[in-house]
Measured scan of single mutants.
Amino acid sequence: TYYTVKSGDTANKIAAQYGVSVANLRSWNGISGDLIFVGQKLIVKKG
């Protein structure tokens, strides 16, 4: 599943929404920190 980042989103918020850990969200998308951008497409695997 892909999720498009919206204004006000955070890695924590997206992870919680899908029931996954922030560490997994980072791993699936090659993100090292919490910096995400509006319009960015993230791979999300439901927990």
Rank of each mutant, 00 (worst) to 15 (best):
W28H: 02
I14D: 00
K45Y: 14
V5R: 00
K46P: 15
T4S: 07
I43E: 05
W28C: 05
A23M: 09
S32L: 13
T4C: 11
N24D: 15
Y18V: 07
A11Q: 11
S7V: 14
V22Q: 05
I31D: 04
S7R: 11
N24T: 13
L42G: 01
V44S: 01
G30F: 09
T10S: 08
N12W: 14
K46N: 12
G8V: 03
Q40V: 06
N12G: 13
A15T: 02
I14V: 07
L25A: 00
N29R: 01
V5P: 01
V44Q: 00
V5G: 02
D34C: 10
Y3M: 04
N24P: 01
A16M: 12
R26Q: 13
G30D: 12
K41G: 05
N24V: 12
F37P: 08
K13T: 14
Q40H: 05
I14H: 00
Y18Q: 06
T4L: 08
L42A: 01
Y18A: 07
R26V: 14
V20K: 00
W28R: 00
K41V: 15
G33M: 13
Y18C: 10
Q40G: 03
T1V: 14
Y3I: 08
A16W: 09
V38W: 04
Y2K: 06
N12F: 14
K13Q: 11
F37I: 11
V20G: 02
I43C: 11
G39D: 05
V5D: 02
F37D: 07
L25P: 00
F37Y: 14
T10L: 03
N29I: 03
D9V: 02
S21K: 06
G39A: 03
F37C: 11
K45P: 06
N12P: 11
K41F: 07
K46F: 14
G39S: 04
K45E: 10
K45Q: 12
A15W: 04
V38H: 05
S27F: 12
Q40K: 05
A23T: 10
S32H: 13
K41I: 15
G19M: 08
S27Q: 14
W28D: 04
Q17M: 15
A23Y: 08
Y2P: 04
K13P: 01
V22F: 05
Y3K: 00
F37G: 06
A11D: 06
I14P: 00
V38N: 05
D9K: 01
V20M: 09
L35G: 11
G33H: 09
I43H: 06
I43R: 07
K6H: 07
S32C: 11
L42P: 01
N24M: 14
K45T: 11
F37T: 10
K41S: 09
I31W: 07
A11R: 01
V22E: 09
I36S: 02
G33F: 09
G33V: 09
V44K: 00
G19A: 07
